[in-house]
Design a protein around this nucleic acid. Structure first.
Lengths: 237, 237
DNA sequence: CAGTGGTCTAGACCACGAG
DNA sequence: TCGTGGTCTAGACCACTGG
């Protein structure tokens, strides 16, 4: 297992959480069972109730426990299966693999969002947006093709940026904090443009990542990222 | 925005977190800046330090802040972009859309893990496993094709289960709590078997979900799930 | 209504690591 | 070394909600 042995400096709340998890795995407490309440566990573990509370909240966040006032804490019957994915900055991802990073813009124009994008972003059909198409390379091989719509009014200063020179991804990360984000995975067959820019055969299966961000001024950006064939996105445990 | 107005019963820690987030969005505190320490903020917000601590930990978990002892708390220069996905039980996913759920087993046999699976799961090449292939249907249309390897020794009682009759997915959820899980997304072109079982044309782009779980006895199961064409997996914000 | 989790507080000690 | 976050505690009040 990847579990570290709880050292001497392990927080007590974490030790309690591990103990409770162990009891669930060992079937001492079975799915659907109610477990002792916080006050009781505090005595059992020789800790303050707040500490037990912290431990149980951890497990509830994981989906292993279900907690309700008055009804107590139960072992989840249907443990939620969650996974967290971290979307790295492309450049770092490429450089971490020891490859040389490069970035090239293939299209930059003003225009209006097509139907699909307007619907996804909730932007008015007559809102002028910037349309950017670019490819990220690792050691000269296409790594990602991004097809991005930007709202120049979302962030002060964006209108002055020349995205032919500046990496949009990184400029946004540094200058456009967002309030809300949406992300989705899907698969598509490479169309002619995908194929051309990724330098692959049309029809190849591609992992597609859609990502849209908003702040209080509305849409910031919406991007469709086509990953090179064979790319895998892993959960960070 | 989807933000709810903080009501009268909103926890103080959350209010503080929102205030801090606002200051960051408003550029009052800029990326890389150090913000006041906990004791100071406690005075500012009229709260106990523990409460401020909770608020800041929330934001740090989100990736908006970076905290280090002695060095203080800073606004993250490169805010982590995380997304959490919840993998639902297939049956529920289908029934939620008002479709009739069905499940059919196409193959069940004993055998040894092929190279790729052995590597992914860390299981010995001579460990006998169960190999299960099944399709989940919604209103008679293939929804998912799962190709699963099971370790019958992982959980007491598993050896006696007839997975021709019992939905493996649901049996596992109820009976095999896990210690560690791994998940990954990718895209593949449908091979002959995928095409046949999903009733689509070979070569179609498919979203593939790999999922492996372990407990302290080792591997529980490793599954490759091929989603029907067009399927989209969205982040749960 | 009353039991249970949710949250806050004031104070304390400790671990870490930047300076 | 010593400032800062990490954590714990004992006690308290409150908000839900099941019975």
């Amino acid at each position: 297992m990847t579990e570290r042995a709880p050292g001497p400096t392990t927080p007590k709340a974490q030790l309690i959480a591990e103990d409770v998890r162990r009891r669930i795995l060992d079937r001492e407490w079975r799915q659907g069972d109610r477990i002792p309440d916080e006050a009781e566990l505090a005595v059992t573990f020789g800790a303050a109730r707040a500490t037990v509370n912290k431990a149980l909240q951890l497990l509830a966040d994981e989906g292993l426990l279900e907690r309700r006032r008055r009804a107590g804490t139960r072992v989840a019957v249907d443990p939620a299966r969650k996974a967290t994915f971290t979307i790295p900055v492309v450049r770092e991802q490429i450089e971490q693999q020891g490859m040389a990073y490069a970035y090239r813009v293939f299209g930059l124009s003003q225009g209006f969002a097509p139907e699909a994008v307007a619907e996804r972003t909730g932007v008015a059909a007559d809102m002028p947006l910037l349309h950017l198409q670019a490819v990220h390379y690792g050691d000269g091989t296409p790594f990602q093709f991004e097809d991005r719509w930007l709202n120049p009014r979302a962030v002060p200063g964006m209108e002055a940026v020349d995205f032919r020179q500046v990496n949009a991804n990184e400029w946004l990360v540094r200058n456009a904090p967002y309030l809300r984000a949406d992300m989705a995975f899907s698969a598509e067959s490479a169309d002619v443009r995908d194929a051309q820019l990724l330098e692959i055969a049309a029809g190849t299966a591609l992992l597609i990542l859609h990502r849209t961000t908003w702040n209080d001024a509305g849409l910031i950006t919406s991007v469709r990222i086509a990953c090179r064939p064979g790319h895998v996105i892993r959960a960070t445990p």
